[in-house]
Write a protein that binds this DNA or RNA. Structure first.
Lengths: 361, 361
DNA sequence: TTGTAGGCGTTATCAA
DNA sequence: TTGATAACGCCTACAA
């Protein structure tokens, strides 16, 4: 077939087919209808013989649609990010779009660069899981008209759609479950919320529920690396519980992981001290007695993100939208103390209370 | 600054600076030295005022270096793939290269498309974790001169460097460890090796060691979804052990996960029946009594991949290279039966036998 | 239905 | 040390 070092160009196809560049171009630009049958045949023949494939760079230069969607992820090693990415990808595929992914690794400078790279490739939309700090690059991109979707974050100064978990619902579900299970004293643990709006939202909601209800709750904001402080806080919290049963609510999967580690290491009994986390992790049913989680519907979130992009690509400039999704509760042993007999029989049998209705606010 | 909808072009910068396009181009193409001080100043001034950034598309059209490296991953949801990706990324960053990632989701057609996309963007190199099946697209890309590195796979008909685990060493280390721990009867479980060369290599080595040694071993090739067959095979294996202690060796992280699930569900005692897996997973120390693993040095592997790319970009056409890395053994409770007292004291204290010397074959 | 010509933003060649 | 000009591969008026 194509033995040349360089890929075939439209001109070569045209020559080989004995037609003009224009006709070949038309064939590949969705105007096949306007070509005669004979013309089409000659073109296909020549193109396949030469192994021709349109060069997106040249295409992009001219300003046509690129069929490209970009995704910028803050931390590729976070399983939650990966799950969302997979959702976005499937949605793209279904829509005939290609997805290119960059990882900013929580580095602002990286984010700048990746953003520049992505935007320079004439992407038709960008799905961003921002590092959270203020980013003028992002704002600029949004202003330039590129459809933008913010995942699990909202940036005050950036004009963009937002898709993510219904944080209020999540916190409420968690609290309700923990109280139902007989836990009277709660500790909410989160990484520093800084500019990460979803962390803020969860923290705020928890605090709010502490204030307005009969809830006896406390919060701990902590850098996950600070093992010493975590251990101390843990001990203090457990001691302070008094008659109430203590339970811990983890703001996300990373926190759940860190906390499970520490609790195991310090010999706390899961369930005796309740443990529950936002984000489902593949090992939650493997570590005895199983960890209760609130799973985010990552597929739906990814799909929604792409939907936003496409809507914005077509329609006129609308006000930023916001789509939130309720999580799914999977109750396991970590929120079940000895005095509460029930699902304990089979470790793998879990009660799954799902509520995946879409909401908007 | 730049209020226009469209990003500034080199021509606009040139005009504003009162110089020619060529000079501006030179400034951004690493030929700053050849410009006079005054010229440089005018250019920077104009460029920053306009917020100018070279357009990679136009650059790519002309054929200059793109500073872009592509990575094609077969399964983005596999933590091992993600770990390697992170390694590749860090190496790229260090080398001043940008990385774009595509996921083929184990789909051959997807792989084709992503490949076309990536290659059309004039990437300077491609790191591929192929789906494994024959891919003429890949072969073509390699022939076209794009530096190519195959991760954890080798494709007979593709001319490319290969980087991955030293599979023979890994199997040998695993077997040695298991025997040391007193396990006399071994079962190696793998997903269908089909075209996945590393699976094949591991399987073959295990078989070979069975034949030439006093090793009493068996192998199971299984589709992970087939729970029923897995359970049966498990039961049969355990029954067949007789006097010897049985242990299972998992070919990769996915297998380890599936097997841990089943063993827990079926009530087998980890350690009583040995369990060990290639690939380290974040929960291996969390599920009692801890799972013994052989961790791949993903950072080193990623770095090596990028090194290959760069070497090939500079140097002349060489014969394909092959770099393999030895894994790191982390012994945990799953390969320690009651009769063997030792590390059991502290769950978090693990004995780590590392051997990260690079080898080549 | 088909073809011609010009331009997208950049780099490379050649001349000044 | 600089600048004019011709590609690069494609798309898109416009013309036939």
């Amino acid at each position: 077939m194509n033995d040349r070092r360089r890929p075939a160009t439209i001109l070569e196809v045209a020559r080989q087919a004995g037609v003009s560049k224009t006709s070949v171009s038309r064939y590949y630009s969705g105007e096949r209808e306007r070509l005669s049958g004979a013309m089409r045949e000659r073109i296909v023949a020549a193109a396949t013989a030469l192994g021709y494939q349109p060069n997106p760079m040249a295409r992009g230069l001219k300003g046509g649609p690129s069929g490209l969607v970009g995704m910028l992820v803050a931390d590729i090693r976070n399983p939650f990010s990966v799950a969302i990415m997979h959702g976005v990808e499937q949605a793209c595929r279904q829509a005939g779009l290609s997805l290119m992914v960059c990882n900013s690794d929580n580095d602002l400078e990286q984010e700048r660069q990746q953003l520049a790279l992505l935007s320079s490739y004439r992407i038709e939309g960008l799905v961003v899981n921002a590092t959270g700090r203020h980013s003028d690059a992002l704002a600029q991109l949004a202003d330039s008209g590129t459809p933008l979707v913010l995942l699990d974050r909202s940036l005050a100064d950036v004009h963009a759609d937002e898709v993510g978990l219904d944080n209020d619902a999540a916190i409420d579900m968690a609290i309700a479950h923990l109280r139902e299970q007989g836990y009277g004293r709660l500790l909410f643990i989160t990484e520093p919320p800084a500019q990460a709006s979803s962390r803020q939202a969860r923290l705020e909601r928890f605090n709010q529920r502490c204030r307005d209800g009969s809830l006896s709750g406390d919060t701990l904001v902590i850098e996950l690396g600070d093992r010493q402080r975590l251990d101390q806080a843990l001990a203090r919290f457990v001691d302070s519980a008094g008659d109430s049963r203590p339970a811990i609510l983890c703001a996300n999967g990373q926190v759940t992981l860190a906390l499970t580690r520490r609790m195991k290491a310090l010999g706390y009994l899961l369930g005796e001290i309740g443990l529950m986390g936002i984000d489902e992790l593949e090992w939650c049913d493997l570590t005895e007695p199983g960890i209760t989680t609130l799973a985010q519907p990552t597929g739906a979130i990814g799909q929604a993100a792409v939907d936003c992009l496409r809507a914005r690509a077509v329609g006129p400039r609308q006000a930023p939208q916001r789509a939130t999704f309720a999580p799914t509760l999977t109750a396991r042993g970590s929120t079940q103390h000895a005095a509460t007999p029930s699902v304990t029989a089979e470790p793998s049998s879990v009660s799954s209370l799902s509520s995946t209705s879409e909401t908007s606010s």
